[in-house]
């Protein structure tokens, strides 16, 4: 397909442009001085200053970081042993447990949201930041398990045998061999679940209690009340933050 090279290349570059143009446009116009945001009237940082002074936004950001942090810790504490268990268990049981663990990956987000909402209603648990954390940990657990297992499967089982042979107890084998070799995957899983949690809107939308506003909830209500240069600036900040996290995770995975 030699002659197709040029055609394919232009098409692919256009495809990439399609993915990046909208984001780029937002970032450029976040610096626009005009409130009528579609026409360019010079560079200004005023919208970023407005964001900085927005008290509600700061609270929402704090909430989001708290939720992402705690749900990520829950996910790792549950996910690492579960991934190890799934690698050790006999295949008949694995065939049974695997789909259960992976189920949240295929459930539509809206459904996950309402299902958790109904659970909390039936259990009469008041909606709060805690319910948001539980929700995020629930849909992020399989994400972490998939990443950690992929790495575990690549580990040479002889390494652990070698450690036992050299006098290590199972716990020492885990601490000194498995954990260090698993570290890149743990970091990758951590960053991914943290990002997904930080970005989640739908599940949060259903299970967040009054006052438990996270950043995406805040963004949503801002968008609902109309286009404004302040949202452009906020979007730019979020995009930069995501890219920073991606860069970080790539950096760690390369090592």
């Amino acid at each position: 397909m030699r002659n197709q090279g040029g055609w394919l290349r232009s098409f692919s570059v256009l495809g990439l442009a399609f993915l990046y143009l909208p984001i780029a446009v937002l970032m450029v116009f976040s610096l626009n001085a005009s409130r009528l945001s579609a026409t360019w009237q010079g560079v200004s940082w005023q919208w970023y200053e407005m964001l900085w002074r927005d008290e509600a936004l700061r609270t929402a950001t704090g909430n989001s970081l708290l939720v992402a942090g705690i749900s990520t810790v829950i996910v790792l504490l549950l996910g690492v042993p579960a991934a190890m268990g799934l690698e050790r268990i006999r295949s008949r049981w694995r065939g049974f447990l695997e789909p259960i663990f992976l189920l949240p990956l295929v459930i539509p987000e809206v459904m996950m949201g309402v299902a958790l909402l109904m659970l909390f209603v039936v259990l009469q648990m008041p909606l709060s930041l805690a319910t948001v954390m539980i929700g995020h940990a629930a849909f992020n657990l399989p994400v972490a398990i998939v990443i950690i297992r992929a790495r575990l499967q690549k580990l040479d089982p002889r390494l652990l045998e070698a450690a036992y042979d050299l006098g290590a107890t199972p716990w020492q084998g885990f601490r000194r061999i498995t954990l260090p070799l698993l570290f890149p995957a743990l970091l990758g899983a951590m960053l991914l679940t943290f990002t997904i949690s930080l970005d989640d809107f739908i599940v949060t939308f259903f299970v967040a209690g009054p006052g438990a506003t996270t950043l995406p909830l805040k963004v949503y209500s801002m968008i609902k009340s109309g286009v404004s240069p302040e949202i452009n600036a906020l979007s730019a900040v979020l995009v930069m933050a995501s890219m920073g996290l991606v860069g970080l995770s790539l950096l760690f995975q390369r090592r």
Binding site: R158, A162, A163
Partner: peptide, 15 residues
């Protein structure tokens, strides 16, 4: 881990 033997693995299994 409590046996007085040590194994040189075929694939070496170096950490």
């Amino acid at each position: 881990n409590r046996r007085p033997v040590n194994l040189v693995f075929q694939s070496y299994a170096l950490f």
